[in-house]
Design a protein around this nucleic acid. Structure first.
Lengths: 336, 336
DNA sequence: CTGTTAGCGCTTTCAT
DNA sequence: ATGAAAGCGCTAACAG
């Protein structure tokens, strides 16, 4: 039924080895022979079996990517960066959602390794010893993208979350705000949560502003949690004049919550965040936010992985991509 | 280096076949033997090689999914549905972006087939003869999701785009609108473009309203094109009183464009669309739209594919999922 | 319930 | 430049 390399060899009157050579573009084939083989391939409609090739060569040209949730716009953008570069280097990707749940992460890492992926791109919560353990049962290279490494050994690419948050809050301070609230992510989340919160505190500190617990609410990154946190701030006897949200989505929730309560943005209250997802310019007022280059994080980490898979030496295996404030309409000075 | 089934067999003092049986949960193994084997596996840190298994069994437990663009929220949602169900049935997915470009689609179909996927989920523009040709070079089942089949032979799951558009426009008509504009997708796109446009026309016709060319603008599904189209409508001597956008994103562009021009939504103009993406409730006013069950489209098509892969007989291979109007805040009657 | 034996379709020395 | 042959690690009859 299925035509194999052997059939092609017979049809072309050469050996399997020769067919293999032409299929793999090995230069050691006489042009004439090459032509004969191509014709036989054409005639028979031969299609190489990548599984057999993988078994024989111990290379699958596929990489595994574990991602928290592909339906999340941020991660989807990273995934696109990964896939584009993978494609460019002729790799395919097996995509697994793991929802930042350790058990699920460990499980998919193992099945990916069983499938003999040539490399692993890991995007998740924290990398624990168990993760390290799972990684080490194989010797394929791993790179973390947008993911914190507790121990610090693994190649990774991310932005400086603490710095990005610091810059966002500093922008608010420069505009004259002194009462700045924060809608944080969960502090257990090292990057989007803890690090951004630390950046907030450092900016306050540097400006000599006091940190107040009632100015911080922990959200879950969702729009709704931005709304809830803002409603809380609105009821404070001493209202903040600006809100820093750890993510765009929560910031948009904040903006709408404010508007629903009749407080004008940015006239009565400023809002800023970190992310710069596409939605940032799809709100009124358009959101001022610190841009995090999602696509590039994916692209760069995949590029790094290709180098590792080819055993090329890489100078820097811990890359931090730049972030940048993009000023739009949601920030102004505090009301006089 | 790597430990194989043979090593385990030796370690456990049994044959490879027995090890294979326990690994594959074949009941024909004495509990005691099973135990011995598991212990050997544990001791050696054995991990089955899925590539070898794939070659021997002619099954890879992975399916290929070609998708237009994973960074697009709509498709990402479908992808999540696919992956969740795939996971449930112990399949993995190889994800390929093809941007609805035929050449790219054909190319990835072929590489997916080379990788011996057990099935194919195709999400793209139109299915042409060339696609059919590519599919037919293999005998794995294919299911189309959210994709039109020109010829009609292939299993598929989608919603009734024409009907969804019809319902949206009819809602507007019921509210009393008689001057209804449409921001369409490109008419070359059978589902989101052409079909939704046809639904618009049919609704008009049924209500005895005349179709006017100047009330239709073709957009590219992006926010910005919603803005541009709306600006055009605003300059018409006889302004429409309601806008039907083929997608949420264009509708949101319309809303903002209207607001920027000082026309209140829905007081001065109503806006409705089809999609019900997460963004629909993340705008003010919240968008009234006809919900398209993206996640379910993915889930149902993957479920269908599993049946096809198991050669189970399926009653209906052309499934149309229901759509539903969700009323929020962007629609009201026309100004008296 | 367990073992033997062929392959699965291809790559890769090693010869020639 | 080409061919022969030995696997890659596993499953799947077939025996027993």
């Amino acid at each position: 039924m299925t035509v194999t390399i052997y059939d092609v060899a017979r049809e072309a009157g050469v050996s399997m080895a020769t067919v293999s050579r032409v299929v793999n573009n090995n230069p050691n084939v006489k042009p004439q022979t090459r032509k004969k083989v191509f014709e036989a391939i054409e005639r028979l409609g031969y299609r190489p079996n990548a599984v057999a090739r993988g078994l024989a060569s111990k290379k699958t040209t596929t990489v595994g990517v574990v991602i928290p949730d592909i339906a999340n716009a941020i991660f989807a953008e990273v995934a696109r960066g990964i896939e584009d570069i993978a494609n460019m280097y002729h790799y395919n990707i097996i995509l697994c959602n793991a929802d930042k749940r350790k058990d699920k992460e460990i499980r998919v890492i193992n099945t990916l390794l069983e499938k003999q992926v040539d490399g692993l791109l890991f995007m998740g919560g924290t990398v624990t010893d168990e993760h390290l353990q799972a990684f080490s049962t194989s010797n394929v290279p791993v790179v973390l993208c947008a993911t914190t490494d507790e121990k610090g050994g693994i190649p990774s690419v991310d932005i400086d979350h603490e710095g990005a948050a610091f810059d966002a809050v500093t922008k608010l301070i420069q505009e004259g705000h002194r009462n700045i609230a924060m809608i944080s992510g969960t502090l257990q989340d090292p990057a989007n949560g803890y690090a951004r919160f630390q950046g907030y505190k450092r900016a306050l500190e540097k400006a000599g502003l006091k940190y107040r617990e009632d100015y911080v609410r922990v959200g879950n990154y969702k729009y709704e949690s931005g709304i809830e946190a803002t409603q809380y701030f609105l009821e404070l006897s001493e209202r903040p004049t600006a809100i820093f949200a750890a993510t765009d989505e929560m910031a948009i929730g904040a903006i709408h919550s404010l508007q629903d309560a009749g407080v004008a943005v940015p006239a009565d209250m400023s809002v800023i965040s970190v992310d710069n997802s596409r939605m940032a310019s799809m709100v009124r007022p358009q959101l001022t936010t610190v841009a995090q280059p999602m696509y590039d994080i994916g692209a760069v980490s995949m590029r790094l992985l290709t180098k590792l898979m080819k055993k090329e030496s890489v100078e820097n295996v811990k890359v931090t991509l730049p972030h940048e404030l993009v000023s739009r309409q949601s920030v102004a000075g505090p009301k006089a």
